[in-house]
């Protein structure tokens, strides 16, 4: 599908979805509460078939956080970027690791480094850092006087 056709299909799925200027791919902004149902439709609806989650990450902004999901379809070869805004205080969003298995590790990584809680995640623990680590290192206000070298 072309970006225009995707836009139409996504608007039909979720009328509240807003579109942002993407350079290469269609960027969709949704509410965090809509994510789980929307993800299921993106994955399973014929014609969309977004079966490959190739990047899952988070961006920490001064006033909020953005979850960013890069999805592509190995059938139709179209790509979409889905973004959801989260509160900086106690950020939380539904897990999608039952839809895309790769999300299990990626969500653990985001939890580890940003402190985003993923509802219903089967095994939400720190992944890269030790279990007793304090704080969320990839947040912009993170300070670590011992391990961080300011350049």
């Amino acid at each position: 599908m072309t970006s225009e056709a995707l836009k139409t299909a996504i608007t039909a799925l979720l009328p509240e979805a807003a579109f942002e200027d993407g350079r290469e791919w269609l960027n969709v902004r949704i509410e965090a509460k809509d994510w789980k149902a929307f993800a299921e439709r993106l994955r399973y609806q014929p014609g969309l078939d977004f079966d490959y989650l190739f990047c899952l990450t988070c961006v920490d902004w001064p006033a909020h956080m953005d979850m960013v999901y890069h999805l592509t379809s190995t059938v139709h070869r179209h790509t979409v970027v889905v973004k959801a805004k989260l509160e900086r205080e106690d950020p939380a969003i539904d897990t999608v690791c039952d839809i895309w298995r790769t999300a299990e590790f990626h969500e653990r990584e985001v939890y580890d480094l940003f402190g985003v809680r993923f509802n219903d995640h089967p095994d939400l623990r720190r992944l890269l850092l030790t279990d007793d680590w304090k704080g969320w290192p990839l947040r912009k206000d993170y300070e670590d006087p011992v391990n961080m070298i300011k350049l």
Partner: peptide
């Protein structure tokens, strides 16, 4: 402002349990 590296090994390793 932010850089994310999507590394191939990370996803490939997650399939090892399966």
């Amino acid at each position: 402002y932010r850089i994310k590296y999507r590394s191939p090994g990370f996803s490939n390793l997650s399939a090892i349990d399966h």
